[in-house]
Deep mutational scan, measured.
Amino acid sequence: ETKSLTLVLHRDSGSLGFNIIGGRPSVDNHDGSSSEGIFVSKIVDSGPAAKEGGLQIHDRIIEVNGRDLSRATHDQAVEAFKTAKEPIVVQVLRR
């Protein structure tokens, strides 16, 4: 079962304390579909994302501050987090 969660993150020394993997390839599949998503791959101990109620590894990131990342490329997702103003509201899907 997958549930949708909304989390609020604040940077600590400029970092949110997690890494992402995935992202849509720069070239779409011929039918326009994509199974890619942006997923949390690593969480830094005691970083902002590790706090209670924070992110978990394998969370799929859907949205950052209202910006849809469900079909974003990896670079677009990285840029969305880099430029996001605080508080950073992150919507994820968690299995």
Rank of each mutant, 00 (worst) to 15 (best):
E1V: 10
E1T: 14
K3T: 11
K3H: 12
S4W: 04
S4P: 08
S4A: 04
S4M: 13
L5Q: 04
L5Y: 10
L5H: 07
L5D: 00
T6C: 06
T6R: 11
L7A: 09
L7I: 15
L7G: 01
L7F: 14
L9S: 01
L9K: 03
H10M: 12
H10A: 10
D12K: 14
S13P: 04
S13V: 06
G14M: 07
G14Q: 06
S15Y: 12
S15T: 10
S15E: 12
S15N: 10
L16V: 15
G17M: 05
F18K: 02
F18Y: 00
N19R: 09
N19M: 06
N19D: 14
N19Q: 13
I20A: 02
I20N: 00
I20S: 01
I21E: 11
G22Y: 12
G22H: 15
G22E: 14
R24H: 12
R24L: 11
P25F: 06
S26H: 14
V27F: 11
D28Y: 10
H30M: 10
D31A: 11
D31Q: 10
D31Y: 09
D31W: 07
G32H: 14
S34G: 11
S34I: 10
S35L: 10
S35D: 08
G37D: 03
I38P: 01
F39N: 02
F39K: 04
S41L: 02
S41R: 04
S41F: 02
K42Y: 11
K42R: 13
I43D: 02
I43G: 01
I43W: 03
V44G: 09
V44A: 13
V44F: 15
D45I: 05
D45Q: 09
S46W: 06
S46H: 15
S46Y: 10
G47M: 09
A49V: 09
A50H: 14
E52D: 12
G53K: 09
G53L: 06
G53C: 09
G54E: 06
G54T: 11
G54R: 10
L55Y: 00
I57L: 15
H58Y: 11
H58F: 09
D59L: 00
D59P: 00
I61R: 00
I61A: 00
E63D: 10
E63L: 06
N65V: 01
N65M: 01
N65Y: 01
N65W: 01
G66K: 04
G66Y: 02
G66W: 01
S70Y: 13
S70W: 08
S70T: 12
R71C: 14
R71W: 06
A72N: 02
T73H: 05
T73A: 03
T73K: 05
D75K: 08
D75V: 10
D75S: 13
T83I: 10
A84Y: 00
K85S: 09
K85A: 08
K85Q: 12
E86M: 04
E86Y: 04
P87K: 03
P87Y: 01
P87L: 01
I88V: 10
Q91D: 08
Q91E: 09
Q91P: 01
V92E: 01
V92C: 04
L93P: 01
L93D: 06
L93G: 04
R94H: 00
